[in-house]
Design a protein around this nucleic acid. Structure first.
Lengths: 222, 222
DNA sequence: AAATGAATTTTGATTAGCCTAAAAATTCTC
DNA sequence: GAGAATTTTTAGGCTAATCAAAATTCATTT
């Protein structure tokens, strides 16, 4: 049985690996866990002794197959719970992360599978992130960030890169959510801001910082 | 913020108090928590320092108003989650306790209230136990143990005293659950066993050990 | 009121997770 | 490739929660 803390370390390593596609450095793990490098070194030794990670002094840490399995299960649980909170309990997408951080540690295989069934085996969570299946596999969709599109392009929002409270609330204010149709009216070269039409509403100006964090499925050809 | 462990201590004290209507002795708490009296003494000092319990050396421990509030909230959460697991995820009543022991520690007021709404504000959990409301109040029903009834009496099962896996599974086998109609066909004075008709099925013999643990609402007068 | 036995507390240790400060290894820079 | 800067590890210590064993207090009996 793993502790809450050990599980969180494995998840942190997984997340770093997802981005870097390389070993997770001690400092990177420390930053993600809001702790010190010294604590990370201690924990890596412990997890290595349990064969959950492959740790090489001064080189960094990778997940072992077992560690990887545990990490993807945590992601699966997290995203299923987020889906439950939004779909069934009517939470909004910026509220669910904190609660799911707790729920993901509930230990019951049967519970996860029943929850998955109850939600009709969803493939994506309320932020558009893929939900791994029981084997840890998930399917990525073809998606492109809004700032990569051109004037005249149209698309539907299928995911967000940033899961920040503030960012998501800002999108709520703009009435932008998953499934929202967006069309690029104009791009301002000077500051890379983009004027978009939102679900047939009047046009709105989005800064590059925002448009970079919106993933669309293109609905026009070219 | 309380730890998982501190919360469990408060719940243990509450449960002892529910039964004994008196102070909870150090040994009684130790037994419920499967720990030693020494550990309990340490913890009582800590909880007393936080004003969650009233602890008097060598005398025993009672809950403070704050401690009582926390304990009933835990019971509330536990019973709501059990209800969720049975009603929505189709678990059976003997499986839910272990999982709810974990879920009850999830910290989010909004989550509890949303869950309560989602379940249509149930008053009783899958074992027939009352669910405290947000203020910690609950309503007891008029109920009587099956072994207190007489030949010819009829009733509906509205609760069970024992929550043991084995006991509940045995009831499942007999097709006895909450809402099941029972009628006393005969009482054997010698061993206090009772012959009952179950929901219009053929009669079955129940030992006193079983009948003592079944709470009914009487449906005949006399 | 002393003695006995049970209940409870104190004492001294252990483990997990974390920290700071110092030392060591690695990487960068010129 | 030597020295500087950065990263990582080691060393030593702290706190929370636990335990076994010893000491204390309480309750009861004689």
């Amino acid at each position: 049985m793993l502790s809450f803390t050990e599980e969180n370390y494995l998840k942190a390593i997984y997340k770093i690996y997802e981005k870097e596609k390389d070993v997770a450095s001690t400092n990177a793990i420390a930053e993600r866990m809001s702790t010190t490098a010294a604590s990370v070194t201690d924990m890596m030794k412990k997890l290595a002794a349990k064969n959950l990670v492959i740790y090489e002094k001064y080189k960094g840490t990778r997940l072992s197959p077992t560690g990887h399995q545990i990490a993807t299960t945590l992601i699966r649980k997290h995203r299923l719970w987020e889906t439950f909170l939004v779909e069934k309990l009517d939470f909004s997408w910026e509220e669910v992360h904190i609660i799911a951080e707790q729920l993901e540690h509930i230990d019951s295989d049967k519970l996860i599978e029943r929850l998955d069934d109850y939600l009709d085996r969803p493939k994506y969570d309320p932020h558009g992130d893929p939900i791994p299946n029981a084997e840890g596999k998930y399917t990525l969709r073809e998606q492109i960030a809004l700032n990569q599109l051109y004037k005249g392009d149209k698309g539907v929002l299928i995911g967000v890169k940033n899961h920040d409270d503030q960012f998501l609330s800002y999108l709520n204010d703009l009435k932008i959510g998953l499934g929202t149709k967006l069309e690029i009216i104009d791009k301002v070269m000077y500051d890379k801001s983009i004027k978009v039409k939102i679900d047939d509403q009047g046009p709105v100006l989005l800064t590059e910082k925002v448009s970079r964090n919106l993933f669309l499925k293109k609905t026009n050809q070219n």
